[in-house]
């Protein structure tokens, strides 16, 4: 009898402590895992999110970089931690697109998606001296000379290469895709005239575009955007290609929904914060908020491809 009451009271106590833990979250500093190296644009986003959200969560967020395996190391680490909402991680499209490759160990359903934060669109660029004045010039030349036009981008099996493949298919051309280890390396190669063209994010071409050293031929977005108002989208040219990078937040699937909701609410406020807006403007990225459910759907769609 005594034992029974003891057990019941223990269970009640446990239950209470669980609910109160959730109600009080966060009571201690939160760790934000970032799979990119310190100082990269993904890392900078993680750090600005950490800094601004402290105001709304009332606890500091510490960014910890866990590089390796294009994010696999970071994901495995997050899943190995207690799912109490004190370990969260930032994600990127290039990371979640790896899910089909991860030999069954990691899957989309291992995570809950908190919010998508930023979008980073793609543009196709050549250098000023290039004979290609418009995207039509490039397509016409590539049609006559299959495989002769070199186009650089970041890595293989990447979003960049995917965009080039989609473009080749839609325009009925064959390009010579040259992968690079970083996003700005192919832009340098275009500037030096070593390759003909490059797919990249605006941040990598902006400075030299404004100085007139680079010419942006096309945008892979729904609509034209600043500062490329004079440049057509691929859509306008009749190729229905919209490709963009994004970055957001996710947590282990075992984190209670209330905590995910609280995190999401904080992220909504972060996005509205002027400091975050200024950050996006300074780094040539674009606000891309998407609530958790919608975000999860997007990740699934893009991974299924």
């Amino acid at each position: 009898m005594k034992m029974k009451t003891f057990l019941i009271s223990m269970i009640a106590l446990l239950g209470m402590s669980v609910t109160s833990a959730q109600a009080a979250w966060p009571e201690k500093p939160i760790t934000l895992i970032c799979w990119s190296s310190a100082g990269s644009s993904h890392d900078l986003m993680a750090r600005i999110v950490a800094k601004v959200s402290e105001e709304y969560l009332g606890q500091p967020i510490v960014v910890v970089n866990k590089e390796g395996g294009s994010g696999k190391v970071a994901m495995s680490y997050v899943l190995s931690q207690k799912p109490d909402g004190y370990t969260i991680m930032s994600n990127t499209r290039s990371m979640t697109e790896l899910f089909p490759d991860t030999t069954g160990k990691l899957s989309i359903d291992d995570f809950k998606y908190v919010a998508r934060m930023v979008r980073d669109p793609f543009v196709i660029t050549v250098r000023q001296e290039s004979p290609f004045k418009t995207i039509d010039d490039l397509i016409a030349f590539a049609k006559a000379n299959p495989g002769k036009v070199t186009i650089g981008g970041f890595s293989v099996k990447s979003v960049d290469e995917g965009l080039v493949k989609d473009f080749e298919k839609a325009a009925g051309i064959k390009l010579n895709y040259i992968p690079y280890k970083g996003g700005s390396e192919p832009v340098v190669a275009v500037l030096g005239g070593h390759i003909d063209s490059v797919v990249s994010n605006p941040g990598e071409v902006n400075a030299n575009f404004k100085a007139g050293k680079l010419r942006v031929l096309a945008l892979a977005t729904e609509e034209r955007f600043a500062p490329f108002e004079d440049v057509p989208t691929l859509k306008e040219k009749g190729f229905p290609i919209v490709t963009e990078h994004w970055r957001g937040l996710m947590v282990s699937k075992d984190v209670p929904d209330e905590i995910v909701a609280k995190l999401n609410a904080a992220m909504v406020k972060v996005i509205a914060h002027p400091e975050f807006a200024q950050f996006l403007k300074n780094t040539n990225m674009y606000e891309g908020y998407m609530p958790g459910a919608e975000f999860a759907k997007l990740v699934k769609e893009q991974t299924a491809k």
Binding site: S40, S41, L44, A207, K210, K213, N282, T283
Partner: peptide, 13 residues
Amino acid sequence: GALMLHNIQPGPL
């Protein structure tokens, strides 16, 4: 990255 955070765009201009 640090320069861009402080709204300075490194480049030809």
